[in-house]
Every structure is written in C-alpha cells, then in structure tokens.
C-alpha cells in the first residue's frame, strides 16, 4: 500500500510528470527538496502536510506560477507554457475565492473566457452551465460580497470549470470554511470529478479530507519541504457519508497520521535518511544530520 508509483493505465502518458523539481526562493529559503512524481489522468491526488512543507510551492510550480529552481515539470508531456498545444487545459483554484469584488458573479465566472477572447454567446452559455454545476444559477447577478464564504468558493470553482479544464489544481480551497460546508463541497467536488473525468491535484492539511477525497495521498514534511510517503486510498467511488465514519476510513487516517508523525520526528530529507535513526528529534534545518 505504501510508496507505490501507481500507473493505472500504463500506456497513457501521465497528466503530470515532476522530474526532480526543487525550489529555493530568492531569499535563500529551501522550500522544496527535489520531488519526483507522476500523476495519471483521472487521478485525484492530494498533497498532505504541515504548514510550510511546500505544498503551495509545489502546486504553483505545476501551474507554472513559479519556476522550479532545478528539474522539470511536464503537463501532458509538454512544458507548462506549451500545454495549450497538447489540447488540454488546466485551472487553478486558490485558497481564497479571489473574485473581483467589482463584478457580478456572472462576470467573475466569465473572466477566463473574456481574457481568452472567446465569443460572447458561447461564453454566456458556458457560464450558465458552470453556475448550474455548482448550484449558483440563482446568484448569477449578485456581487461577491452578497454571498457567503462557501458560495464565493463555489463561484471560484465555477470560474475554474468554465474553461472546461482536464486538470484542476486546488490549493486548500475549503480551508477557511466550517466543517459542514467543507464536507458538502468535498462531496460536490467528487461528483464533479467523476462526472467530468477530471484530474485533480488537491492541497490540504486535513487528514480526513485527504482520505475522503483521494485516490492517492502524497505525504509531505517540512524543514526542508519534501515528499516523504505516498498512500493509495483503494476505496471505490462514489464515497458516501458512511465512508467518513467507517473503519477503513479510520485505518487510512491512522496510516497517514503515522506517516506524518514519523516524518516530523525525522527532520531530515527522506531520500537520504529514511532509515537512519537521527537520535534526538531535531527540528533544526538539519546540517548536523548531514550524511
């Protein structure tokens, strides 16, 4: 179950290939040790880890918002700036809704189409479909400030879906919401994922959200940020509310928690020190534990 480099359908080219990409910010912060990761089309992959472990950094690098310091990232076998030529699209959902407060919901959802210069009537149809999908048709003419936090997040998701992406990158999209709303949006998201056959990379620091949603969880650790483990969640979809309180669910959660705790106790790059017991559990940036 652990650390399997999963290839569901071996002959299809992966949706995302991360080839030993790492990141050091210009201020010298080592945000991410080299990461190697393949994500197949149709997977729902979650990046799970404590604050500061480089989840957002990794996601932004996949989206092309940040350039890796070293290594390469391919989306459908193309570098990010030539993804369009592969006929695939990706969309990014931020931690906050990041809507334009001066525009109505409809115009907010239409933004990516406007920026792309799509035809008006076709765009309008897609905006309506997209709002329908997230259940906000009635609020098309509202301003963002008239909506609740959860509704704003749904607008943000509608804005991502309107471009009909195959790949959805989501950075803690429901982190700011209460648990009830979050659970609801989680199952809505799974429905969409199944219906639209999306590939999703989802960031969270909730173990439960990770178990509920994912086909595969990438466990990360901080200082320095790195990937320490992968866990497949071999549980059929659709996953109902019963799954949340089932014993398998608890087992998966325990596996992930153990993995996180082990990583936190090690405090050194996993690829070099995974079975070295580093005596005192030092949180410090690891020079003394150098191989």
């Amino acid at each position: 179950m652990l650390s399997s480099d999963q290839s569901i359908i071996p002959n299809v080219s992966p949706a995302i290939e991360i080839l030993s990409a790492d990141k050091t910010y210009s201020n010298g912060t080592r945000a991410l040790e080299p990461v190697d990761l393949k994500i197949q089309p149709g997977e729902f992959v979650t990046l799970l880890g404590p604050s500061g472990c480089g989840k957002s950094t990794l996601l932004k690098m996949i989206a092309g918002l940040l350039a890796p310091t070293d290594g390469r990232i391919l989306i459908w076998s193309k570098p990010i700036d030539r993804v369009e030529s592969s006929g695939h699209k990706l969309a990014f959902v931020f931690q906050e809704a990041t809507l334009m407060p001066w525009s109505r919901v409809r115009a907010n959802v239409c933004l990516p189409l406007d920026l792309h210069g799509d035809a008006k009537d076709e765009a309008e149809k897609r905006v309506n479909d997209s709002l329908e999908l997230v259940g906000l048709s009635k609020f098309a003419d509202a301003y963002p400030r008239e909506l609740s936090g959860g509704m704003q997040m749904r607008v943000s998701i509608a804005r991502a879906l309107v471009t009909q992406p195959d790949l959805l990158l989501m950075d803690e999209p429901f982190g700011a919401l209460d648990e009830i709303t979050r659970n609801k949006l989680d199952s809505d998201l799974l429905d969409l994922w199944e219906k639209k056959k999306l590939t999703v990379v989802f960031v969270t620091h909730s173990i439960y959200e990770a178990v509920y949603l994912s086909t595969r969880v990438i466990v990360m650790a901080a200082r320095p940020g790195r990937v320490v483990d992968q866990v497949n969640i071999d549980e059929p979809y659709p996953r109902g509310h019963d799954f949340r309180v089932s014993s398998q669910f608890a087992r998966y959660a325990k596996t992930l928690q153990d993995s996180l705790l082990r990583a936190a106790a090690m405090g050194a790059p996993a690829h070099s020190a995974s079975d070295v017991s580093t005596g005192s559990a030092s949180d410090e940036p690891t020079n003394e534990a150098a191989q």
Binding site: A63, G64, F94
Partner: peptide, 21 residues
C-alpha cells in the same frame, strides 16, 4: 489583490487586459 494578479497571469492576460480589468 495578489491572488487575482496571479490568476490574470495564469490566464495569460495581456498588459492591457490586466490594466483595464
């Protein structure tokens, strides 16, 4: 808003679009 700015950048908005919108 830096989030919106990234969003525009990711959607390859031109300088002019970013200014006006």
């Amino acid at each position: 808003n830096p989030g919106l700015a990234s969003y525009f950048k990711m959607n390859r908005a031109s300088r002019w679009q970013t200014l006006v919108r």
